[in-house]
Design a binder for these strands. Structure first.
Length: 249
DNA sequence: GTTGAGCGTT
């Protein structure tokens, strides 16, 4: 029986949940089962996976039947190197349904008024952005992220292209404006036009193919009635034929 | 092929 988590939660009446962190992304419940089962009776092992790719998130939940065994497993497997990585085994603090867990065991269902538990770190929920279904925003976000990364490096610190923006902007613009006004109007006219020339209608930071998102909602937004059917028999075209009723079809 | 703080499903 290695179908853990395939049939949902079996029974959390008297089970002690252990949280296993720092496991590899390839470690599965079947790999953890023999390890944890050696120290006690494991009733269920669940490893949260991603909805899109189905990869492990890096941690697992091991449910023991007895607290003493769970404790023993924690003491024994905590810090153990599994698959080349040191895992961290500890008692789970939260339950699947926001239940309060005491020593790894579900003791009470937290009412809707007690929400001060899950707010430990406002970091992003998951590594995947499948929760934020926004392509336009994501594109911009990514760009900014990249810039930030560069900034962190300290290499792209040239954020001052102009020695003195104030001087250049204020005085330069004033002078330019004065000169432009004093000079001629033809230049002013040709100025915006030339500027438009080199600017091509193209998005430099926009890529046609981003990630192969298979779950794209706009998979097929074609109208069922406007199908590209070769049978789009135009009435006006057939109009010139008086006897076309039942002849063609 | 990648990543690494954290708390969970039919």
């Amino acid at each position: 029986m290695s179908h853990f988590g395939r049939s949902g939660p079996p029974d959390i009446s008297d089970t002690y949940s252990l949280l296993v962190l720092n496991i590899t992304f390839r470690t599965t419940a079947d790999d953890l089962f023999p390890l944890f089962d050696k120290y006690g009776k494991v009733v269920d092992i669940f490893i949260p996976r991603d909805r899109r790719t189905g990869e492990s998130r890096g941690f697992a939940f091991v449910r023991y039947k007895y607290a003493d065994e769970a404790q023993k497993a924690v003491e024994r497997l905590d810090g153990r190197v599994v698959d080349g990585r040191e895992i961290t085994v500890q008692f789970a603090k939260y339950g699947p349904n926001a239940e309060r867990i005491q020593k790894g065991r579900v003791v009470e269902t937290v009412p809707r008024s007690r929400h001060r538990s899950r707010s430990r770190s406002p970091r992003r929920r998951y590594r995947d952005d499948y929760r934020e279904r926004d392509s336009r925003r994501r594109s911009r976000s990514r760009s900014r992220d990249r810039y930030r990364e560069r900034d962190r490096d300290g290499r792209g610190r040239s954020r001052s292209p102009s020695a003195s923006p104030n001087y250049s902007k204020g005085r330069g613009r004033d002078r330019y404006d004065d000169e432009r006004r004093s000079r001629s109007r033809s230049v002013d006219s040709a100025s915006p036009r030339r500027s438009r020339s080199p600017r091509r209608s193209r998005s430099p930071t926009r890529s046609p193919r981003e990630d192969g998102s298979p779950d794209r909602r706009s998979h097929d937004r074609r109208s069922p009635t406007q199908s590209a059917s070769p049978r789009g028999r135009p009435a006006d075209s057939r109009s010139h034929s008086p006897r076309n009723s039942g002849v063609d079809e």
